[in-house]
Computed example of a mutant assay.
Amino acid sequence: MKVLITGAGGQLGKEWVDFCKDHGVSYNSFSSNELDITDEDKVAKTIADLAPDVLINCAAYTKVDEAEENKQIALKINAKSVKKLANICNRNNVKLVHYSTDYVFAGNKSDKENSPEGYKEEDSTDPVNAYGYSKLKGEEAIKDSGCKFLLLRVSWLCGKYGHNFVKTMLRLGAERDELKVVNDQFGSPTFADQVVEQTFELLQQNKTGTYHLSSEGMTTWYHFSKEIFEQKGMNVKVNPVSSADFPTKAKRPFFSKLSTQKISNVDGVLILDWKVGLQRLLKQL
Rank of each mutant, 00 (worst) to 15 (best):
K2R: 14
L4H: 09
A8N: 09
A8M: 08
D18E: 15
G24P: 07
Y27A: 03
F30G: 08
E34L: 03
L35G: 09
D39Y: 12
L50R: 10
A59M: 04
T62A: 12
T62R: 10
V64I: 15
K76Q: 13
S81I: 08
S81L: 06
K83L: 03
N87E: 15
V94R: 07
L96G: 09
Y103H: 11
F105N: 04
N108A: 09
E113Q: 12
P116N: 02
P116Q: 02
Y119C: 01
Y119H: 00
K120M: 12
D126L: 12
G132A: 09
L136E: 02
L136I: 04
G138V: 01
I142W: 05
D144Y: 02
S145N: 00
L150K: 03
L157M: 15
G162V: 04
F165E: 00
T168G: 00
E178H: 11
D184H: 02
D193I: 12
T199K: 00
T199M: 02
W221F: 14
S225D: 04
K232M: 12
M234S: 07
V236R: 03
N239P: 03
P240T: 11
K249G: 01
P253N: 03
S256G: 15
S256Q: 14
K257H: 11
T260Y: 03
K262G: 02
K262V: 00
S264H: 06
S264Q: 12
V266D: 10
V269A: 05
V269I: 15
L278M: 13
L278C: 08
